[in-house]
């Protein structure tokens, strides 16, 4: 097992990146779309995990940010804004929305928070369906057509990569440590100087940015968004399922979860026309019953994860050793 080392893992990662970067040359647009969607789901799951995993607040409404990003980008694109500007403004809007809703939401804890965030998506769906003149109503909204697959593919990879880096460094920062302490015991964290409320709000804002961004990229590529696609159950559940499946609170978790889920989709969805949601549901139940820590925290994998240095417990001794030398 000596090949399981951090160094080799980086090699594998770089290799994967090279393959992904060169993929548009030979691959069909179907394969590109598949990777594109995986990147979108991964970004959603990773950004969900900032609040759901690090902070320990179960944000079932994370896809609200995806939907908002998608809708605002679509509306801006239709008003002849350039892509970059549209994405930028969409992110600002999404982040501002997150900042505003964080005030009432973080007065809640536990089940109440989970429920309220879940309710938020249904509210957004009502708004998207009813504000006809802005959103196009329940029929959805189309953006300028065109073949954006290849650039969108690269953009989604960049977004996903950026979120991986964000999540990785968050786990090692002072801010990330504060989030973990809030997860463990909020009152104690406060009495040890952690400004809990601002930090909770900030973490929600940070988690909203990647979600809003991929929402925008998604709509630009697919050129269409409707209320159920933006705020429906399937998109709402996928980040939670992916993060929980892989393992929350670790950067590697959503990565594993995303690959796993998209593989399942690829293998099952195509063959079975119905019961997609049922499969999601059964997965959720099984996770809750048997694997609340996710795949990575199972008995066989966790030692490997720790050995790679991706566990929650950072090996400070090693770092200290290098300091003293």
């Amino acid at each position: 097992m000596s090949w399981i080392q951090r160094k080799n893992l980086y090699l594998v990662a770089i290799l994967c990146l090279c393959v992904l970067a060169a993929l548009p040359l030979p691959a069909s647009s179907y394969a590109l779309m598949w990777v594109f969607l995986t990147a979108v789901y991964l970004t959603l799951a990773l950004s969900y995990d900032i609040v759901g995993g690090f902070l320990g607040y179960m944000n079932l409404g994370h896809s609200t940010f995806f939907g908002l990003g998608a809708y605002s980008t679509a509306i801006l694109l239709n008003h002849d804004f350039g892509l970059a500007l549209a994405l930028f403004l969409a992110i600002i809007f999404t982040a501002a929305f997150a900042a505003i809703v964080s005030y009432p939401f973080f007065r809640l804890r536990g089940a109440y928070f989970a429920l309220a965030t879940f309710g938020l998506i249904s509210l957004m769906e009502v708004f998207a369906s009813n504000l006809q003149h802005v959103t196009g109503g329940s029929g959805g909204i189309s953006t300028p057509p065109g073949d954006y697959m290849v650039p969108a593919y690269y953009l989604s990879l960049i977004a996903a990569g950026g979120t991986v880096i964000l999540s990785h460094f968050l786990g090692r920062s002072r801010f990330g440590l504060a989030l973990l302490s809030i997860r463990e015991d909020e009152e104690v964290a406060r009495s040890f100087g952690v400004p809990t409320f601002p930090y909770k709000s900030l973490s929600l804002v940070i988690s909203s940015v990647p979600a809003g961004l991929v929402g925008g990229i998604y709509v630009w590529n697919v050129t269409y968004i409707s209320p159920p696609a933006a705020f429906g159950l399937e998109i709402a559940l996928s980040p939670v399922v992916i993060a929980m499946l892989g393992g929350t609170g670790i950067t590697l978790g959503p990565l594993v979860g995303a690959v796993f889920i998209t593989l399942i989709q690829e293998l099952l969805w195509i063959k079975v026309a119905h019961f997609h949601l049922t499969i999601y549901g059964v997965l959720l139940v099984l996770l809750g019953l048997f694997m609340p820590g996710g795949i990575l925290r199972t008995r066989w994998l966790w030692p490997v994860v720790q050995r790679l240095g991706f566990g929650e417990k950072i090996d400070y001794f090693k770092k200290q050793g290098t300091l003293e030398r």
């Binding site: 002072r174 440590l177 463990e184 015991d185 952690v194």
Partner: peptide, 21 residues
Amino acid sequence: VRPFNSLTTLENTLIGLSFGR
């Protein structure tokens, strides 16, 4: 006693060091 249970002893202490006086 109310330590941050799943964090390490060192991480517990680092919280104080990162946000104290």
